[in-house]
Design a protein around this nucleic acid. Sequence first.
DNA 1: TGATTTTGACTTTCTTTGACTATTAATATT
DNA 2: AATATTAATAGTCAAAGAAAGTCAAAATCA
Lengths: 147, 147
Amino acid sequence: MKISDLIEQYINEIFEGSDVVELNRSSLADMFNCVPSQINYVISTRFIPELGFYVESRRGGGGYIKISRANSTKQEYISSIIQKIGSKLSQSVIDIYLDDFIRYNLLDKNTALLIKVALSDKSLNKVDKQKRDEVRADMLKNILINI
Amino acid sequence: MKISDLIEQYINEIFEGSDVVELNRSSLADMFNCVPSQINYVISTRFIPELGFYVESRRGGGGYIKISRANSTKQEYISSIIQKIGSKLSQSVIDIYLDDFIRYNLLDKNTALLIKVALSDKSLNKVDKQKRDEVRADMLKNILINI
DNA sequence: TGATTTTGACTTTCTTTGACTATTAATATT
DNA sequence: AATATTAATAGTCAAAGAAAGTCAAAATCA
């Protein structure tokens, strides 16, 4: 098995326990007896946004590479909601969804409030009234996909 | 965790109680087993004016470093941005703003991403193209007001 | 042969350290 | 009382150290 696959496998094993993995690039490279840049290669080819991964890093002393992934149960829940959302969403229905999201820990309160504000009539003032609910539906779906 | 982070954390803990922190540089350095100038490093990289901190100091016997946080500054920063935002905002200009917000710790990356998605052309698909930039401006202002 | 993987030299960013400088307060001297 | 000296602080700046990023050449695989 090639080394990139082994590294990928190793990272995925750490993911078993949580949705965040923090790596030290050079130790990992040592561990697999490869050059550090191979870690970048693995990350950039396997832990990509399209697969629900998000990567942050920092250089310098105490540097790190942090990979987060969209939790899979969350992922399922999100897709089910996206299915349910039709082509229109009123402000009040959105509020109900948002409360649910908070209850299920999909969002924290601040984020929920932010979405509420973003999708409010006030924000959508310039949009024709008849179209607002459609825009809201599109926006919420898009947001959910990217959470 | 690296030493600068520990020092930052310690100072932030003192801030829990009040809006002013008075430090003795060398004792702090002793406490964290580092050279005194590291305290300056921490202050100059983390307790910066952009984030609403104001630093005073005095040398000589009984010298000190005093950090105050201006609660209003973040708010002032937000208001100044709201002023600056005109009636239209393109997707690309929004990206610049969001980067600034992340840099100034006004938003974390996920929240910024969420806003980006919410205000994207994809979300605003049903809105007339000519109107999208206006809607974006309204939305961002509303979001900022409610942060 | 074309795509993927491996390697490594070079770059960039952030942190730590320490030598040297500047300022202030306290104390001693005139 | 005014002035000089000493001690106690803090500030500055650049070098060294500790990561991670980039990019393209070389190697390997299908």
